[in-house]
């Protein structure tokens, strides 16, 4: 099996209060550290585990700036054979644009594969769409929220996809296909700094995205960025214990966890 895995370098925003610049024209990411997109980490791990069993190779692909080489080295340290950087000059917010660049890249470079893995979504834009759009454009079968791969045969995959409320759906998908991998499908291995240093010795090919951007339409546009409505501290429930209890039950109902 030859598996292509798309992996993305994203800002680590979980602990940050983000700032907007120039009346919401952009989000200030200048001081943030970057990391591999969590879902992509699971995807790489899953792909590596599969080829360890079936043979073949994992190729990691990142569409992003030159710094994205970092996530390729990481993927190689985890067991990918190759890393391809599709060096894009600008941030592509539109998942259609990202998927089209990916499509053009695969076609133009004639890259063969049995399966393409992406993460379910990326931590920054949370579009959860690039995998599906790419599959649609390639005319290949697709599934997202893949939480288990039970069998990987030359002509098909048996996968489990996560639905809501603890339910899963087992499906049979023809190969070649595109699968978007859900976090929690495995426990991604630790990649030590030494490991990454060793991986750096494997050459990563760099492709200029401009070549594949031809005819990439921007199908959606950002008017501007805004802050979410302020929540402001904990709302303290006071009064008689009984009325507090009733208020609490009201909240539980509103949140949909109690009848």
């Amino acid at each position: 099996m030859n598996i292509l895995v798309f992996t993305k370098r994203v800002p680590a925003t979980q602990e940050e209060e983000l700032r907007l610049l120039g009346d919401g024209n952009s989000v200030d990411l200048s001081k943030l550290p970057f990391k591999v997109n969590d879902w992509d980490n699971y995807s790489v791990e899953e792909a590596v585990r599969i080829v360890e069993k079936t043979g073949g190779a994992v190729t990691a692909i990142s569409i992003g700036d030159a710094e994205s080489d970092e996530v390729l080295r990481r993927a190689i340290a985890m067991g990918a054979k190759d890393g391809f950087l599709v060096d894009a000059g600008k941030v592509l917010h539109d998942p259609n644009a990202r998927a089209t660049v990916a499509l053009n890249f695969l076609k133009k470079e004639g890259i063969a594969f049995d399966a393409i893995f992406t993460g379910v979504q990326s931590e920054d834009d949370q579009f959860a769409s690039v995998g599906g759009i790419l599959a649609g454009k390639l005319g290949l079968p697709y599934s997202t929220m893949v939480i288990g791969i039970d069998a990987f045969e030359p002509d098909h995959i048996i996968a489990r996809r996560e639905l809501e409320g603890g339910l899963q759906e087992r499906i049979k998908v023809k190969v070649p296909c595109v699968l978007s991998i859900q976090s929690g499908i495995n426990e991604p291995r630790y990649v030590s700094i030494m490991g990454v240093r060793k991986a750096s010795k494997v050459e990563r090919k760099v492709f200029k995205a401009a070549v594949y951007e031809e005819g990439v339409p921007s199908r959606i546009e950002v008017v501007k960025w805004v802050y979410p409505e302020k929540k402001g501290g904990a709302v303290m429930l006071a009064g008689e214990l009984e009325s507090v209890c009733k208020d609490l039950l009201g909240i539980l109902k509103e949140k949909g966890v109690y009848q």
């Binding site: 680590a12 602990e15 940050e16 550290p33 970057f34 990391k35």
Partner: peptide
């Protein structure tokens, strides 16, 4: 590795 502290708190803070 990311935030320079084991708890992953924001380095900026």
């Amino acid at each position: 590795a990311v935030q320079k502290n084991p708890w992953g708190k924001s380095r900026g803070k």
